[in-house]
Design a protein around this nucleic acid. Structure first.
Lengths: 224, 224
DNA sequence: ACCCGTCTGGTGCGGGCGTACCAGGTACCA
DNA sequence: TGGTACCTGGTACGCCCGCACCAGACGGGT
């Protein structure tokens, strides 16, 4: 925003905010609550990634409050795309499930902030202001947990799943057996078994059941 | 609300509303949004069942907006208790996961309403007003789905889980094996197997994995 | 007293699953 | 050109699981 329309204002012009959450009543409530802050201007709200794409382009927000779980995809996965559409927009991820893995993924994707929904409304307001000024916003508690984990695992938290593994995880979450998955993807049962074994290793699980359990807890799959 | 089309209601007094949701920022946002309605008075907000108990007694609400998933238990399971504390209070269940089973459970527990979080904020406002007047509030879409299912299954949707089964389901959701569960509950593996088989039958699953998948989808377990 | 639902325990069998360990093909990068 | 990561497929072993079917114990309801 340097020089585009609003030249060198010290700090406070109105911060243009876009709210995206699949729970429409939450998006609307949050929008109203933010609107009551004098220095914030809610310029739009949406309930899906596709709406986010459209609104980021048309409503020219400074900060995007983006839910992690959206009906048409993963919010974190859409961050890069939103940045491509509007590079100056800062994205703050809102999430119901606080997972270290998710936090890392969001920050790596270029998120300016990461706030759990269990936090107070004030934290969102503060987070939006901070993000608008180019600061990063992460809950102290989450950050501590993350650092602890990084220290414990020697930075090797890069348990990133491959595309195929994520695909298999999704089918696993539907309750499909190895044979079902093999048929669905037209590959061998052995291959499925290998992928599942790799998933188990990466997630630290010892069975498909535990894989699913962890995946749900960490928000890696759509539970709806 | 938008004032247009609102039928002439008595407006005998302000409706006292209590908001309970584990996502504090949602509870606060919703509370603020409801507060802006002239005929509604938000008398409190909480993030757990224990807080709900306390606030129902001390804040004397007419309508309680209660989230389904709370940190210290199931919101639906707490409805009866809240009624015991304050019989005149109407409970409207808010839920992220729209499941027929959950809807039935909520209505049977004495809920005055059942609203999905994907619905509009106006629906909540209308739901609160309706509940205050003794009406039942259920989304037309949900109701249609429910009726369709009842017709299809001949009313056999009464797949209520026993206390023990729910207990085993929780452990299952943690990724524990049959042997682990047996040890945890100090019962035989055979018994666990029987319970799991009963769970499978009641949920219409064919494996533990599918049981967990369905349970998560229907919000029967804490995914966090 | 009787039935019914629930929790408890058991036997036996077949198949799916977890594990280990292997290797060919492909794509990408240094 | 070689290394690396990923997807693919395989073999083999043993255990756990799903299924069918059984039965005793306990509590509640008619």
């Amino acid at each position: 925003m340097t020089g585009s329309g609003t030249p060198g204002r010290p700090t406070t012009g109105n911060v243009r905010v876009l709210v995206v959450d699949d729970h429409q009543m939450f998006a609307t409530s949050l929008a109203q609550a933010l609107q009551s802050e004098s220095d914030l201007l809610v310029v739009g709200q949406g309930t899906s990634i596709s709406e986010a794409r459209r609104l980021v382009a048309s409503a020219t927000p400074d900060v995007v409050l983006l839910d992690h779980r959206l009906p048409d995809g993963d919010g974190v996965g859409a961050i890069a795309e939103l940045h491509r559409i509007r590079p100056s927009a800062k994205v703050v991820v809102l999430t119901a499930t606080t997972s270290d893995r998710l936090l890392v993924a969001a920050m790596e994707a270029g998120a300016a902030g990461f706030i759990a929904k269990t936090q107070r409304l004030d934290d969102v307001v503060g987070g939006v202001r901070a993000a608008a000024q180019g600061e990063s916003v992460v809950s102290a508690k989450l950050l501590a947990r993350l650092l602890l984990r990084l220290r414990r695992q020697g930075g090797g938290s890069g348990a990133e799943l491959t595309e195929r593994e994520r695909e298999i995880l999704d089918l696993l979450a539907k309750g499909l057996s190895n044979a079902d998955i093999a048929q669905e993807l037209t590959i061998s049962v052995h291959t499925v078994r290998n992928h599942v074994a790799n998933l188990s290793a990466k997630l630290g699980a010892h069975s498909k059941l535990e894989v699913l359990s962890i995946a749900v807890r960490e928000g890696l799959v759509d539970s709806t």
